[in-house]
């Protein structure tokens, strides 16, 4: 499978996870989730509202990210995406840096809105293409945002699952761990076990991730690509080629 094919499959996979949402918000540097949200809106009519931070056209907020955070606190956002330089088996995420704070090497940009949105958006999809022991660690060096909280902490949101370029895991809140739900066709259970630094539940018969519906893929390549190009020009060029992006 080529890298661009895989990216398109990830977009279709995420689009299917967003069907039950009314309002999906996407961070500025998240082209695959952003494309997925635009595709889901086009294909299923839901989510009805997609807000891509940093985009002018695909963003109806008139009070910047303040409105995003107010929406989240009121339960007006159904799904969001977070990543992280490190993600551990309890779905803690680290966006700050490797090593001991504040002397991280490397230091990453910072925690952004994760320490808030992870608590308040019901369906947070962790998305990180790189599936390696460097990223998927036993314990993050810094908790930018915790995967689970104690009972007395106000929390209406949290991790739904973790998608990488090799697999999809569902997060099990009660057990505080991940369950391997499906393996992409470019990988295998052995490959996943070799490249995952945290313990997770799995079955020997874990299914392959379903191939994308051909009509959904076609819709992405024909109708949604222009919208993707508007927001993520570099990504559209790399993934769909210049010709496709200009059609």
């Amino acid at each position: 499978m080529t890298e661009t094919t895989l990216k398109k499959e990830l977009i279709c996979f995420i689009a299917n996870l967003l069907k039950d949402c009314n309002h999906v918000a996407v961070g500025a540097s998240s082209p695959i989730p952003g494309a997925a949200a635009l595709l889901a809106r086009e294909a299923f009519g839901s989510p009805r509202h997609v807000n891509i931070l940093g985009s002018v056209k695909n963003n109806f907020f008139t009070n910047g990210s303040q409105e995003l955070f107010d929406c989240a606190a009121q339960g007006r956002i159904d799904a969001f995406f977070l990543g992280g330089g490190q993600i551990d088996g309890q779905a803690n995420i680290n966006l700050m840096g490797r090593g001991a704070y504040p002397d991280n090497t490397p230091r990453w940009p910072g925690t952004f809105g994760s320490a808030y949105l992870y608590f308040l958006i019901p369906k947070v999809i962790l998305f990180r293409e790189e599936h390696s022991r460097r990223v998927l660690v036993d314990r993050v060096d810094f908790i930018s945002a915790p995967g689970v909280s104690d009972e007395n902490i106000y929390r209406t949101g949290g991790p739904y699952g973790l998608l990488t370029n090799k697999a999809f895991f569902r997060f099990q809140k009660e057990k505080r761990n991940f369950l391997l739900e499906s393996i992409h066709s470019n990988s295998s259970l052995e490959d996943i076990l070799d490249n995952t630094g945290f313990e997770f539940e799995y079955s020997q018969n874990t299914p392959l991730t379903a191939a994308p519906n051909p009509q959904l893929l076609e819709l992405l390549e024909t109708h949604v690509v222009d919208k993707v190009k508007d927001v993520y020009p570099h990504f559209a060029q790399e993934t769909f080629g210049i010709d496709a992006a200009c059609s």
Partner: peptide
């Protein structure tokens, strides 16, 4: 990214950091 002079300043401890989260 990454921001080279920011990274350098952290390494050399020439700036004080007050790390927050966006809504804060």
């Amino acid at each position: 990214n990454p921001a080279p002079r920011f990274s350098h300043a952290i390494k050399e401890k020439t700036i004080r950091l007050i790390d927050a989260t966006r809504p804060a």
